[in-house]
Design a protein around this nucleic acid. Structure first.
Length: 345
DNA sequence: AACTCGGGGGA
DNA sequence: TCCCCAGAGTT
């Protein structure tokens, strides 16, 4: 049996029971693929359940408010996925008569749908011979064929895509694509793969050459930047606080947070920033106390956020204040969400 | 071609 | 700690 037939057979015997494997509805396949980008199945699964319940069809998603979509997405990360998801739902309703396009080429035009996702939808929903290349596929192919071209180099991306075209099963691209990904996730996993019991271990070049644990090769990533976030948690007599919406290009675009005073380094004494705080929260009469004695270090892929929450008590009334009752209805970064749970106002 | 965008989990 | 996860968009 050849590589692709062997992979498919393994899949039929070992595949996990997952909700998006019970449908070919392009809307639901699209939803699952967007959610699972750079995200483990275990982490994405509850979000898929929440979304399909809240938005059974693309029309329901298109009719939602963006903040509602972001709220349901809260905690899953890479929030541009949620914004693009909502944008594309409206696009599908307005410009595609509610029907997803049915080819790789046409799917690529959708915002948030790249090479991988277009191939996944085209193959799974429409049986197009469009090979997927995700992190799992890079790993399986680099090991089986013992290829050390860096998977995140221009040459590597091209080479592995071509290789995927050579091995994809033309009779059943839908199951082959899901099979090779599942195989990479469950059997040919990053650490301690099950080579001894692997159905492909006799023909695996990487195993033969004892290079499995060195593959795939990946170019080094850039190092992380440090930032210092001081959140101003206003608490007024009227049981209100302030939230602001993050705008611009950086992290957490569209999510809400307490008014932020970002500094170049740790704050020694908060009194040094009296005028800055006045300017940010538009209040003159307040007293500030530190909530967390040690800075919390919130770690993102490219940034470490040294965070302090400052409790700002005031008797003044707030402009654009938010009642503490409704604070949990706003989409917030997990860093803010954790604080809200702990502080409990 | 390099950077940016989250959060969680495993070793 | 470091790496990885059903990647895509921007610079």
């Amino acid at each position: 049996m050849n590589f692709s037939k062997e992979i498919i057979q393994w899949y039929f015997q070992n595949k996990r029971d997952l909700p998006w494997r019970k449908t070919k509805d392009p809307y639901r396949i699209w939803l699952s693929e967007i959610m699972l980008q750079q995200t483990r199945v275990a982490q994405g699964l509850p979000y898929y359940e929440k979304f399909t319940e809240a938005f059974p069809t693309v029309y329901d998603l298109a009719n939602a408010e963006e903040s509602q979509v972001l709220k349901l997405w809260q905690g899953l990360g890479y929030y541009s996925r949620a914004r693009n998801l909502h944008y594309t739902a409206k696009d599908i309703v307005e410009n595609y008569n509610g029907q997803f396009p049915s080819t790789y080429k046409a799917l690529l035009k959708l915002k948030g749908v790249g090479d991988y996702t277009a191939s996944a939808i085209a193959s799974i929903c429409f049986d197009e011979v469009a090979p997927v290349v995700d992190g799992n596929v890079y790993r399986v192919l680099s090991r089986y064929f013992d290829i050390d071209t860096p998977i995140n180099s221009t040459e590597g991306i091209k080479k592995f895509k071509e290789l995927a075209f050579e091995v994809v099963d033309h009779d059943d691209p839908a199951n082959f694509n899901q099979a090779i990904m599942e195989f990479g996730a469950v059997q040919c996993k990053p650490q301690n793969p099950y080579c001894i019991i692997c159905p492909l271990h006799e023909s695996c070049e990487g195993l033969k050459n004892q290079r499995v644990d060195m593959l795939p090769v990946k170019l080094k990533k850039t190092k992380v930047k440090k930032r210092w976030f001081n959140y101003l948690v206003v608490v007024s007599n009227a049981s209100e606080t302030l939230l602001e919406k993050r705008k611009g290009k950086g992290i957490w675009q569209g999510l809400y947070q307490f008014p932020l005073l970002e500094t170049e380094t740790s704050i020694e004494t908060i009194a040094d920033y009296q005028s800055e705080i006045e300017e940010i929260i538009k209040i003159k009469d307040f007293s500030v106390t530190k909530f967390n004695e040690k800075e919390m270090i919130h770690k993102l892929s490219h940034q470490h956020l040294y965070t302090t929450f400052w409790i700002v008590e005031t008797t003044d009334s707030l402009k654009n204040g938010i009642s503490l009752q409704e604070i949990r209805t706003y989409p917030v970064p997990i860093l803010i969400g954790n604080f809200i749970e702990e502080f409990n106002f």
